[in-house]
Amino acid sequence: MISINGLYKQFGQLEVLKGIDLNVEKGKVVVVIGPSGSGKTTMLRCLNVLETPTKGVISIESQQLDFSKAVSKKNIASFRRLTGMVFQNYNLFPHKTALENVMEGPVIVKGESKVAARKKAQSLLEKVGLGDKIDYYPAQLSGGQQQRVGIARALAMEPEVMLFDEPTSALDPELVGEVLKVMKDLAGEGMTMIVVTHEMRFARDVADEVIFMDGGVIVERNKPEEIFTNPKEERTRKFLNMIQ
């Protein structure tokens, strides 16, 4: 359902992604791990087209972008709607309340009526456990609450895939659980997810597959129980030893 073929990304002289190939089936949860600078964030950002790949083909459902050719803004905009992005530092709109943050996309981008969007936003915020905080501004919320608003904001656009870039790494340890729980519930509902995270428990419990990236390539991919107990590649083994 998602397929990435021969994805390359270069920043000036620095080649960050060196040929990524990846397929993710509908409803699957893929966790991406790997050392700092290995290109995990860049790969997610390419899927959301926040970065323009140097070359490669990405397709989600029936839409395809081929970056070997020029890609029109219109195609990028409609492709972007297929993915929901959750950022490491939330990036909520500070001048809008939780409810307004979630309503913004449906109203402005999709042109939904305010009444309908409000109703949907309210139920999404309830779903992430923030039904009592809808009129709070981001500055009045804890990190964990802000990140849950971030998830609701992405969900409001009804994406095919949710992309998470280290969604809990900016959080105090005691707030990590509430965000992971929301993500776990989402996975349980059959949402397709690609999650960059260092939370190995989450990977073990929720992921259908774990991908280990290093130096801009996918070094190894396997079921979590396999990759954690019996990594095939030396580099994977070294990395797992280092973080455990």
Binding site: K73, A77, L92, G105, V109, M157
Partner: peptide, 17 residues
């Protein structure tokens, strides 16, 4: 912050939106 632009883009906004 650049992240504000990106958050807007990520929910499908155009530059002017």
């Amino acid at each position: 912050p650049k992240g504000q632009w990106e958050a807007g883009y990520s929910i499908g906004m155009t530059y002017s939106q």
